[in-house]
Amino acid sequence: MEMKKARHSRIINTDQVMACDLNNYNTLFGGVLMKKLDGVATISARRHSRAKECVTASIDSIDFLAPIHQSDSVCIESYVFYTGKTSMEIFCKVIAEDMMTGDRRIAATAFLTFVALDEHKKPMVVPSVIPETEEEKTLFETGAERAEVRKIRRKKSKGLAESISVKKPWDEEVETKESEGAL
């Protein structure tokens, strides 16, 4: 399998903050930013794997580091920095720029994991990554550890999911009253 440089999957997307994107504090809604991150990371995953479809396997973390205001532009940079056999870990950094002053700041960072799917919607093997910059090398060096933590977390999440009820809360109330003879 071929190897690809991290920069070949790099996506840079810049957008303005609209009034409809703001929360009651007049800063960008976290959910709006999460949607943007997922969209940009998807393109990085597709560019790296050259797959028609890539699905989000996990959003490992999003750290909101500084508020984003309506007067800011939002620049999201993403790239694949580490791969497993079929998974790709993508780093996203969010740079907010005050359009009046030109001041720039890191507003958020995020780690997302994607899986490329073949024409039968089965996971497919993806190319390994060649890191070049110091940032890429630093992230690459932590990739295996991060993947192991993700596997452990996923196993725990599956175990938890097996013990969680899928009943509707309002149905439990009716069942309790029926068993107590209240109805």
Rank of each mutant, 00 (worst) to 15 (best):
M1L: 09
E2F: 09
E2D: 13
M3K: 05
K5R: 10
R7M: 13
H8F: 15
R10D: 02
R10K: 10
R10Q: 06
I12R: 11
N13M: 15
N13K: 15
D15A: 14
D15L: 11
V17H: 09
C20N: 15
L22R: 12
N23G: 07
Y25M: 10
Y25D: 10
Y25G: 07
N26A: 12
T27L: 00
L33D: 04
K35Q: 12
K35H: 15
L37A: 07
D38N: 09
D38F: 05
T42N: 06
I43A: 07
S44A: 07
R47L: 12
K52T: 14
C54D: 01
T56M: 00
I59P: 08
I59T: 11
D60P: 08
D60A: 11
I68G: 06
H69Y: 13
Q70G: 14
S71P: 08
D72N: 10
S73T: 14
V74Q: 00
C75N: 15
I76F: 04
I76T: 11
Y79K: 08
V80Q: 02
F81S: 06
Y82N: 06
T83E: 07
K85T: 14
T86V: 13
S87D: 05
F91V: 07
F91Q: 05
K93R: 06
K93F: 01
V94Q: 04
V94S: 04
A96S: 00
E97M: 00
M99D: 09
M100T: 14
M100E: 11
G102P: 12
R104A: 13
A108N: 09
F111L: 14
V115Y: 00
L117A: 09
L117C: 15
D118P: 03
P123V: 10
V125C: 02
V126C: 03
V126N: 03
P127S: 00
V129K: 01
E132P: 00
E132F: 03
T133L: 10
T133K: 01
E134Q: 11
E135P: 01
E135M: 07
K137S: 12
K137T: 13
T138I: 14
L139S: 12
T142E: 11
E148F: 04
R150P: 09
K151F: 01
R153M: 13
R153D: 11
R154M: 14
S157M: 10
S157P: 09
G159W: 15
L160V: 09
E162C: 08
E162S: 08
I164S: 07
S165R: 11
W170V: 15
W170N: 13
D171W: 01
D171Q: 02
E173K: 07
T176W: 06
S179V: 15
S179C: 13
S179G: 12
E180D: 09
G181I: 08
G181R: 06
A182E: 12
A182G: 11
A182I: 15
